[in-house]
Write a protein that binds this DNA or RNA. Structure first.
Lengths: 344, 344
DNA sequence: ATGAAAGCGCTAACAG
DNA sequence: CTGTTAGCGCTTTCAT
């Protein structure tokens, strides 16, 4: 048989090496941006790769190096503005760090689901894992040998390779509550998310702290499920209580439902009752009344968290970089006002 | 030295084979659910794997088999309800098909961005690619050797391995427009999304078709950018035109902005002007007026598309399964009514 | 129904 | 600065 003539098979690094007149290892060095390669050779290799339309085979690379250069994220299988924004922010942060992203979502964020998801991620091969907004119950029991970042929750793994970052939800919740208090309200009610969620609990903490700091009465809290419908249901109850003049709601959608119920019951917002949401979905600037809310710093949280995670992956034995305080951004629109009968 | 004593390293398939008293190949057969393994052996292997906490190494598997068992998706780097819902639906469909998901997002869905994203997916190694809601301009120029599914758009690759599935946006748009026409409106205006998007164009088509079918006048269309703010801007223009009595809007958020502007200009919705949105975000059942909209069948679209893609991956040379017509679901709420001066 | 040998495409460790 | 050798952990032939 003459030569190896045939259809142009997918090029390998050996083909590039041959075309450039160097060894395979040198090709590898160039492609990995390693030092100790003369610029001339580097150039030549790059051109050869380009000419052949060469594409590195990541599976082979991963097998040989033991690193996949990818990060897995366990996300929630729901499409709310908050979770979606977080996922988008994570994707960007991961890509900016030079890693690829693998996603598994869980229906509900329960420990069992999370364990399954983490397991599947580990099997696929990831250098690090992000668990986004898990719920609170129980410990996750899987053997993990890579660093895990818990976004918006304390670590549930206990392992030494777990890191945490958050959106500073407690601070944000506190700012929201303070805003209402500053307006003159005697106290502030709270419509929380499902308390099995860390995210919901954090916000409860912030709300409590704001009230406690001024020695105010802490009304019993009401619990929703993040949906506007659940906000509406909660609103019907709250509307019946004349004591209620201000409500801090743990999510924009729930806040919209709540306002609906309040309005329907004849309690005007913000004239009779003030409402603050949580998330910062820009569409609610256009409803009546425009929703006052607090913007979640998704990008900052994802970016910070990822810095920590990448650090844990790449320099396991050195000091963690300090976490920066996430920015607190209160968006005051039209759903908040002083209480109806301000004693002046 | 006695034995190989040391720390319990990560178990490999050879360890499982040894513990089960079989060959590595048999372990492989069991793990891949291949036939020709006696139930007894199968059982023994499974137990051994369990006992050792064995986890398959996907990089090695991919390298040896040439298949990664993963699908890559090129998503939009925006967090709207629509795109986020689609991504969630895709994730579920992919997982249900037994594949893993790798995500790359593009800021804007431009062909260049898409090309870059596809390239990075190919480098990571994927068996198939989903391009979610791309924009319309230009062809994507990358050499792809795996099937590509265009979700909500005709193929931009031209290759024989490209498949398409959609949400049937034209049908949905037509249903929305028909609803308005049925109510008695002489014609229906349309606030479209950015026309560079296939999704926006499809809906324009549906709107046009509905109008044409009844021989109605086609007003000039207005273009937004999916945001509520852009809907608001468009609404200020439309409000000035007394001819406008019904508007079909290409997205719920824009519809909310539009209603805001209309209301502000003294044109009541739905009394003076009827508005239909697009997406089906449930939160807008709780605003005033509750938004009439058409629900996008994200799950059906993702499921159908994935069936096609998986078919193209696994049985390249056989007939494609037929695409089912996506369900049309009009959600009539309070933002639509008969025109103000119905000649009775 | 099971096993032995070979090799996927790359990087690691060591030479030079 | 560059090349050589070995081997990552699995699946693929092909035997048996």
């Amino acid at each position: 048989m003459v030569g190896g003539g045939g259809s142009p098979a997918v090029p390998r690094s050996a083909d590039v090496a041959q075309l450039a007149g160097v060894s395979r290892k040198t090709v590898s060095r160039v492609l990995n941006n390693e030092p100790y390669v003369s610029d001339a050779v580097r150039q030549r290799v790059l051109e050869a790769a380009e000419e052949l339309g060469y594409r590195l085979n990541n599976a082979a690379r991963a097998l040989a190096s033991g690193r996949t250069r990818s990060i897995g994220v366990v996300a929630l299988g729901t499409a709310g503005y908050g979770t979606a924004s977080l996922l988008v922010a994570i994707e960007k942060a991961v890509r900016d760090s030079g890693y690829a992203l693998r996603v598994v979502s869980t229906l509900d964020g329960e420990p069992d689901d999370i364990a399954r998801a983490v397991d599947s991620l580990l099997e696929q091969g990831v250098d690090g894992i992000i668990v986004s907004e898990p719920v609170i119950e129980g410990e996750v029991s899987v053997r993990v040998d890579v660093p895990v970042l818990f976004l918006g929750a304390p670590s549930a793994f206990g392992g030494p390779r777990a890191v945490t970052a958050g959106v500073g939800a407690d601070l944000l919740a506190r700012a929201a509550t303070d805003h209402l208090l500053d307006l003159g309200h005697q106290t502030v009610h709270h419509l929380a998310g499902p308390l099995r969620w860390y995210a919901a609990r954090d916000r409860v903490e912030g709300w409590r702290a704001a009230l406690a700091a001024r020695g105010r009465h802490q009304p019993p809290l009401v619990e929703g499920d993040w949906s506007a419908d659940s906000g509406y249901l909660a609103g019907r109850e709250l509307a019946a209580d004349p004591e209620v003049t201000a409500v801090f709601v743990s999510g924009d959608d729930m806040a919209i439902g709540l306002i609906h119920a309040l309005t329907e019951a004849g309690r005007r917002v913000p004239h009779d009752v003030s409402v603050v949401g949580f998330d910062g979905n820009p569409v609610f600037a256009h409803v009546t009344p425009p929703l006052t809310t607090v913007r979640q710093p998704f990008d900052a949280a994802a970016g910070d968290g990822l810095r920590l995670l990448v650090h844990a992956i790449e320099k396991p034995d050195t000091q963690m970089p300090p976490a920066s305080d996430p920015p607190v951004e209160l968006v005051v629109r039209g759903s908040t006002a002083p209480p109806p009968s301000s004693p002046s």
